[in-house]
Design a protein around this nucleic acid. Structure first.
Lengths: 121, 121
DNA sequence: TATGATACATACAAATTTGTAAGTAATGAC
DNA sequence: GTCATTACTTACAAATTTGTATGTATCATA
């Protein structure tokens, strides 16, 4: 969620893990607000103000940071319109749209997992 | 990776997000070493020492913490044998095995994403 | 000239995750 | 009695992520 910092074991293993396609992918989804944002954009909530309204608890700062990261990771595009007051629209990229059906699988598994825990504890 | 701390906005939104099956699921996979560990256990690397050997860069502390969390989350089981030197074996739970095919999807998407970035930058 | 609307930016602080270094416990082999 | 083996634990520190509070820019409208 921030810039690259100094070199360290931390950075080294991050790089190492990025070589694996799986951990690379999971890292892209890993910010707290990333997937909610992606999902909502796909549902038409494609402006800063809209997202702010529909995501409870998110702060403007985190919304900004998350949008920037999603953009840097090639998951959303950002279009600025030369209007006042400003208008900026976000949209999913193709690769992000490919992620949506996988998210359905993950969501389904998440529910199953919740239920499996109820019956185990 | 640690205990529950004081109440805060942070905790509040974590709880909120856990209500969503998708973010709940992603959170389970989100530790840096979680999926590598799960994968390796599924491939027969089911002891502490084995995992330590085959996962470059991981520290004993992180391995311990990750294994504990996976256990707490119901993704692996831990079996202690009454031997000296100690022998402890880990195994995937059923719900964790259900995750494996989904991981294949995610991995495949991760590769596609990497390629999409190469051709865009 | 002041206000509102929109989409941010910035300085700072708290919470969380990850890493470093050293130590523990049990016991059979030497 | 010392050592090796295995699977950890603990105190501490660094790095990363998330949150709080406040400020900025533009221009049309009142």
């Amino acid at each position: 969620m921030t810039k690259v910092k100094e070199s360290s074991t931390n950075q080294a293993s991050r790089k190492f893990l990025a070589e694996c396609d799986l951990t690379h992918a999971v890292r892209l989804m890993s910010g707290r607000w990333k997937l909610p944002i992606l999902y909502l954009i796909s549902k038409g909530q494609n402006r800063f103000g809209m997202l702010k309204k529909v995501i409870p608890n998110i702060t403007e700062r985190m919304l900004t940071l998350s949008l920037r990261e999603l953009e840097d990771d090639g998951l959303i595009t950002r279009t600025v319109f030369a209007e006042i007051p400003p208008r900026v629209e976000y949209a999913l990229t193709e690769i992000a749209m490919d992620l949506l059906p996988i998210c359905d699988h993950i969501r389904h598994w998440g529910l199953k997992h919740k239920q499996s825990i109820i019956f185990t504890d």
